[in-house]
């Protein structure tokens, strides 16, 4: 799993490449918890390079959502592949997380 952090218009973007298997998910969770504890309020997950996610990966996204909701923060996801979007649909999370096709769309909408 590769993870690149960047910032655009005050939004922290985490671009995740490869697999959110148990190991990748743990790394992402540590990163997300660190950002939230540092006071981050806008988080965009760029999943255009993401090939795999499971329920543990979804749980980290929910954790970010729950914490940011309390502080009126924002969380969104962009660039998700079709077969991964299906996981969001089956879990019902497609109705909870704003999903954008491109990073540019997400940044301008957030």
């Amino acid at each position: 799993m590769g993870m690149i952090e960047s910032n655009e218009n005050g939004i922290t973007i985490l671009a995740i490449d490869g697999n959110l298997d148990a190991e990748g998910t743990q790394l992402m969770e540590e990163k997300v918890v660190g950002l939230l504890e540092g006071g981050e309020t806008s988080l965009l997950f760029d999943f255009s390079g993401l090939d795999y996610i499971n329920s543990s990966g979804l749980r980290v996204l929910v954790l970010a959502y729950q914490r940011l909701k309390k502080t009126s923060g924002k969380v969104a996801i962009c660039g998700i592949k079709d077969y991964i979007q299906e996981v969001f649909e089956v879990s019902g999370y497609d109705k909870i997380f704003p999903l954008y096709t491109t990073k540019e769309d997400a940044v301008s909408a957030m």
Partner: peptide
């Protein structure tokens, strides 16, 4: 989602 304490079962 913000009211769900238990996220198991997914």
């Amino acid at each position: 989602l913000e009211e769900r304490d238990h996220l198991g079962g997914m």
